[in-house]
Amino acid sequence: MRKQTTIDLSISLVLVLAFVALPHFYSNLTILFMMAMYMVLSQGVNLLYGLTGYMPFGYVGFFGAGAYGFSIALQHLHFPIVLALIFGVLFTSLVGVILSPLLRLSGAYFAIGNLATSQVIYGIVANSHLQGITGGGDGVDISQYFNQTASYYVMLAVLLVVMVGIIWVKRSSFGLSLQAMRDDSVSVAMSGVNVVRNRMLVWLASAAIAGLCGAIYAWFISFFYPSSVFDVSIGIFAIVFMLFGGQGTIFGPVIGTIILYGIYNVIGVSTPQYFQLAYGVLIVILVMFLPNGVLSLFKRGRRAHGRVLESRPNF
């Protein structure tokens, strides 16, 4: 058990180190930044969906909230960057607390409700009556703080922390109780686990991850409109990357992001319709034939060879 943890941690470290080294070989920092960001985001979705079964279709709501929390802290409160990032995360967590009644909903109701909340946050931020605070439709200009290199390395630090966090959650008794909760919440509650509190913790952690990503993203591009940070496709991308790699696994979201975002940059840019088509077909195939992501292929292979099955179903 301990050995596996060490290996997982080393892989994560190698991954982050690779990202640290990559800018020396390849100078389009934005692609690297976005890739790291999507890894973190899809881990955020993974945490929530993989462990508790809630599908956050409006995940981008937290992302946008983080971007705006960060910008407001910089522009109006004149916080230094680090404090502003923390403010962005706290602000997002507050939004998470306000939206926590959504957790009472289940399945499709939650997914749709979550999508609606992201639209509401967007509508509020973009509204011209709040122009004095959010800039409304005029967008945000924090270009005096523009620093792509610094924001890139901060994102990598976040990636490392999130990877370690995910590994810890998967291995800890807390994580185990969450997975049990997902499968049968009633019996877990009877065995003395505080189901509501645990769900709430995961929900807030997942929200904070998205908020932090949004905040760093805002810093990275430093000039944006509400429609750019509340673009529903950001959250959807994270979800698809996670599903493709494998929900509830440690490295599924990472692999999903590398493969799909890589493909996106190769085909998507030149012929977007074909990309969207391929993407849609891919999702359909995944759901029909491979609902547990590409990582499950390896497990299936093993099973077919008659090896010993794992003690736990998800990694």
Partner: peptide, 10 residues
């Protein structure tokens, strides 16, 4: 939900 999201993209 996810499947028909794919269909909608197509």
């Amino acid at each position: 939900l996810i499947l028909f999201f794919g269909v909608s993209q197509v």
